[in-house]
Nucleic acid binder design. Structure first.
Length: 728
DNA sequence: AAAAAAC
């Protein structure tokens, strides 16, 4: 040890020597005692007033011990002998007890501390104190006498109360043999709603299907519908797949429901789901396509090229030009292209071309696209479906939060391409509704994300169901070593295409880190969100999204929250309202960070820092898509500055930070920020804005999922949906 | 650590 006699090291304080002559460090001495052990003078408020001082600030408030002294008299007085424990000179505690307890304890040192071994708290003098005391050895508190106490007590060994044991659970209320409620049986599944011979049943809403204790929170979910928090109290990080192993877990409320009632709309049906139907293209004239056309030169068939032209897509983007030929050649491909650079078509076009057309005979899916979120699944399916249609192939969207019936029936009819999120796909696999044994082309979109800890088990489960040797295409804007395990296990001699010219983000994107003060955060958020044009705001948590959206509406900015804790219907509606401009500001968790394309998002505001450089790039990538321009603003509180410096530097977008207070002109020039109106957007008005969208031209057929009660025909189509939300 | 992925 260094012999720093001038400043005793922590270990050396074992030394008894701490008297007046000893070297002192201020922090080693309880601050309310002088170094010689006598207590410091503490001014009374009258004395403070005499000296022209105001009341004590919080740090100077008497602490508990001091208040007690004032109230009960002072066991600790200037006579040091009366508080022997705190007289360092005469302290006779065992040496090890005199080890300093760390600087953070110094404040409390002025108060009698409780030492389990040596404490003889004066305030509870054994001889005079009348209050019942608890002594571990002798106490025979009458009210808790073990022998005479009549109250039922809990004894781990003999207690008969039904307790929940994961393995041996025999809770009376869920007795397997006597319970009458319809029950999920893994084998011999007789769930009525999945009876494939009676498709009508599948169309029933969940609330109409036989099910467990409708409305029973214990059964349904641990979701807290008041706070909007869908997180179960436990098992938050265990991975949702793990919950699937035990039906008992589910019955005991360990599940993670997806049917949280919409906020402040608690009367609404739980079955607030999303529907999807393939978009259709206007008929195209394939005769107009020449072999000289950009996409045709890549080797794509005429119907596809014609369909692209009809969509206004005439020339391949670089990532498409790079990956399509290799993919058509049957190679496994790792494709990395900047956000908004056209990766979806980069895998969709070769996949459809390879599949060539509808299968003859067995029409189990031959193409599979796996994506991390439901919204992205819908978006990808929306891109692929019309293209597939031109080649007489069908595309099915398989994702949670949607009715089972259409998905199961789709497989009965025959499907060529499946676009799916992992959870529902596995669910259907386990039901036997889905056969992946004929998949020829499998795509992992956002592959690096699909390879992370939370998704990996589900992804491998699915990949393992597909025949080995099929073609695999992995795409992401941030395709890094995270996918190595997947590549090693499932890909064969893949070719990598990285089309970003070394640039992390597109050149049309401008990045600002804005240093702000904590109390300015809400005002600045509102000013930036109040800019004209579409804005996406990212926050870290679901509740943060709800909160920021609410605050923005209170400030007069029409903003809606999007996160995984909402019902799927609510998710779909708010995204639709954002896309059509009804709601110009979307406040989202990272559920919207990847892949989601909305035209003309002019600015991405990160109110909370992203989790990492990849998340930064993906969030930022919601703007400046397909050649457009965009601004990315990241707010940085003082304690986040370093972190953001590191993040932006790792993401390759570091730039000189701005400092801004509300009303800042430089910020206004950079972002278009402006003072919001201040006229709050009421909850009722907001809910009108996100009323069920008229998807697919608003044909009643497409709206049935918003009027879920119409199955029996006793109620008109979307009545319930609009009626429920448009009141008030 | 959070979010996301099923009912």
């Amino acid at each position: 040890m260094p012999t720093n006699s001038g400043a005793p090291a922590r270990a050396s304080s074992k030394s008894k020597k701490s008297g007046p002559g000893a070297p002192k460090k201020a922090r080693k001495v309880p601050k309310s005692f002088k170094v010689d052990g006598t207590p410091k003078k503490r001014w009374s408020s009258a004395e403070r007033a005499d000296r022209g001082l105001g009341p004590r600030k919080s740090g100077g408030q008497p602490n508990r011990a001091q208040r007690r002294r004032e109230q009960f008299g002072a066991p600790v007085t200037s006579a040091g002998a009366e508080r022997p424990r705190f007289d360092r000179e005469s302290d006779d505690r065992p040496a090890r007890d005199k080890t300093p307890r760390g600087d953070n304890r110094s404040r409390s040192d002025e108060r009698p501390r409780f030492d389990r071994k040596t404490d003889e708290r004066p305030r509870f003098d054994r001889n005079t104190d009348e209050r019942p005391r608890f002594d571990r050895n002798t106490d025979e508190r009458p009210r808790f006498d073990r022998n005479t106490d009549e109250r039922p007590r809990f004894d781990r060994k003999t207690d008969e109360r039904p307790r929940f044991d994961r393995k041996t659970d025999e809770r009376p209320r869920f007795d397997r043999n006597t319970d009458e409620r319809p029950r999920f049986e893994r084998s011999g599944d007789d769930r009525p709603r999945y009876d494939r011979t009676k498709p009508e049943l599948s169309r029933q809403t969940r609330s109409e299907r036989p099910r467990h204790e409708a409305g029973s929170d214990r059964w349904r979910s641990t979701r807290d519908s008041r706070t909007g928090d869908n997180r179960p109290a436990d098992n938050r990080s265990g991975g949702w797949r793990d919950d699937r192993g035990s039906r008992d877990n589910r019955s005991a409320g360990f599940s993670r429901g997806t049917d949280r009632p919409a906020r402040s709309d608690s009367g609404e049906s739980n079955a607030d789901t999303m529907s999807w139907t393939a978009r259709e293209l206007a008929p195209v004239d394939t005769g107009a396509v020449t072999a000289e056309h950009g996409f045709a030169r890549l080797g794509l068939p005429k119907p596809l090229v014609a369909a692209l032209i009809s969509e206004g897509i005439t020339d391949p983007f670089p990532i498409q030009a790079a990956t399509i030929p290799d993919a058509l050649a049957g190679r496994d491909v790792l494709g990395r292209g900047q956000t908004g650079s056209g990766k979806t078509l980069g895998f969709a076009l070769p996949m459809l071309t390879t599949l060539g057309g509808p299968a003859k005979g067995n029409r189990a899916p031959r193409g599979l696209v796996l994506v991390p979120t439901r919204e992205l699944a819908m978006q990808v399916a929306d891109v692929i479906a019309p293209l597939a249609k031109t080649m007489d192939m069908s595309v099915t969207l398989i994702a949670g939060g949607m009715a089972y019936g259409p998905q199961i029936r789709a497989f009965e009819r025959g499907v060529d391409v499946v676009v799916a999120t992992p959870g529902r796909l596995i669910d259907l696999m386990e039901q036997g509704a889905l056969d992946l044994s004929r998949v020829e082309v499998a795509v992992l979109d956002e592959a690096d994300h699909m390879a992370d800890l939370g998704f990996m088990p589900a992804v491998t489960t699915i990949m393992d169901q597909m025949p080995a040797g099929g073609q695999r295409l992995l795409f992401s804007a941030t395709l890094d070593r995270a996918v190595d395990r997947l590549v090693k296990k499932y890909l064969d001699n893949p070719v990598t295409h990285e089309v970003d010219s070394g640039q992390a983000t597109v050149s049309t994107m401008v990045h600002h880190v804005v240093h702000i003060l904590p109390h300015d955060k809400n005002a600045l958020t509102a000013e930036i969100a109040g800019r004209p044009g579409r804005t996406v705001i990212f926050v870290r948590t679901q509740r943060g999204a709800d909160r920021v959206a609410e605050q923005l509406r209170a400030a007069g900015v029409t903003a809606g929250a999007l996160h995984g804790g909402l019902t799927q219907g609510a998710r779909t509606r708010i995204l639709a309202a954002f896309k059509d401009g009804t709601v110009p500001v979307l406040v989202a968790t990272d559920v919207a960070a990847r892949g989601i394309h909305v035209d003309d998002v002019g600015l991405v505001l990160q109110v909370d820092p992203p989790a990492g450089p990849k998340e930064y790039l993906h969030r930022a990538g919601r703007t400046a898509r397909a050649g457009g321009t965009g601004v990315v603003v990241t707010l940085a509180l003082p304690h986040q500055r370093k972190e953001l410096q590191r993040l932006t530097s790792q993401a390759g977008v570091a730039s000189a930070p701005l400092e801004a207070r509300p009303g800042d002109e430089a910020l206004a020039r950079a972002t278009g920020s402006r003072q919001p109106s201040g006229a709050a957007v009421s909850q009722a008005d907001f809910e009108k804005l996100i009323a069920p969208p008229a998807r697919g031209g608003g044909r009643p057929k497409n709206r049935k999922d918003f009027g879920r009660r119409d199955a029996g025909g006793y109620r008109g189509g979307n009545r319930r949906g609009t009626g429920g939300r448009s009141r008030g």
